[in-house]
């Protein structure tokens, strides 16, 4: 069973649309949704969570339709948005009583464990927390009711590298259990590179690529060559290129690289930038 399955999803706004989106989050996997600002990442997540109404297509979450049966699966989903939505007047201690009343499987011990792990004070008003502390608290809440699926929308944006690393570590721990899956959207590609099994690229509301991360490393490489050498490479194999005064930097399918040219491993961020900016 897939944790999330999206087929032929369409959602139209006045000036933007998510078009014919097909995306799968396999069980036990971490899927990173990458895209520039306004690419449709948050819209996709809101559609999955039923906060926006789709125009057509189907979405199943943990095997159930996300509109008709979403209420029955909310127990198993943990969500972290880009902003901490908790009342700023409350403390982490008082917040617990709200979620204890909301989730049947709420685990006080787990919550306290996460607060301790993140070094978060129990009796300090959330409004006085730093952004990093707020996001850690959001993570603690999302994980303390034994969710099987985590959905994170830009949860690491605006955080310093140390906090981001803490959160990534937590996600890695979460996916130790093969029943646990994560859909995480971000435009900080390096975070996704660390944590994800699959990478999905969204660009202007369309899914341009969804591939296993390791396969991306296997399939693509970076080469530095002259314009004459570039002309000899099959154009369909070129994902993106940046031509400058001293030659070209090209992301290309490995099999299309002439043996005389040295190739270098790609990083996902470069692949993303080339795909979006340089237009393969």
């Amino acid at each position: 069973m897939n944790a999330i399955e999206i087929k032929g999803l369409n959602k139209y706004f006045k000036d933007f649309a998510v078009k014919d989106l097909n995306l799968t989050v396999p069980n036990g996997c971490v899927v990173g949704l990458v895209g520039e600002n306004g690419a449709g990442k948050s819209t996709t997540i809101k559609l999955i969570l039923g906060l926006l109404h789709k125009d057509s297509g189907s979405i199943t979450v943990l095997g159930k339709d996300n509109v008709k049966e979403l209420d029955s699966i909310k127990e198993d989903i943990g969500v972290v948005f880009d902003e901490c939505c908790f009342p700023t007047e409350l403390t982490a201690h008082r917040l617990r009583s709200i979620f204890r009343a909301a989730y049947r499987q709420w685990d006080d011990a787990a919550y306290e464990g996460y607060l301790k792990r993140f070094d978060l004070p129990l009796n300090k008003a959330i409004g006085k927390f730093s952004r990093g502390m707020k996001m850690k608290l959001s993570m603690a809440v999302a994980l303390s009711h034994h969710a099987r699926l985590l959905i994170l929308d830009e949860a690491t944006s605006g955080l310093d590298p140390v906090v981001r690393d803490d959160i990534i570590d937590l996600l890695m721990d979460f996916t130790q259990d093969e029943e646990h899956s994560i859909l995480i959207s971000s435009h900080i590609v390096s975070d996704l590179e660390k944590a994800c099994d699959y990478i999905a690229f969204l660009h202007k509301g369309r899914l341009v690529l969804c591939e296993e991360k390791d396969k991306l490393y296997e399939q693509y490489c970076v080469i530095h060559c002259s314009e004459q050498q570039l002309a000899t490479i099959d154009k369909t194999a070129v994902i993106g290129k940046k031509v400058g005064a001293f030659g070209a930097e090209v992301i290309v399918q490995k099999e299309a690289v002439p043996s005389a040219l040295p190739s270098y491993p790609i990083d996902i961020e470069k692949l993303f930038v080339f795909m979006v900016k340089e237009g393969g």
Partner: peptide
């Protein structure tokens, strides 16, 4: 605060 959005991700 975004609570209206967040609470709908809870069993509500």
């Amino acid at each position: 605060t975004g609570w209206n959005r967040f609470c709908l991700t809870m069993p509500v």
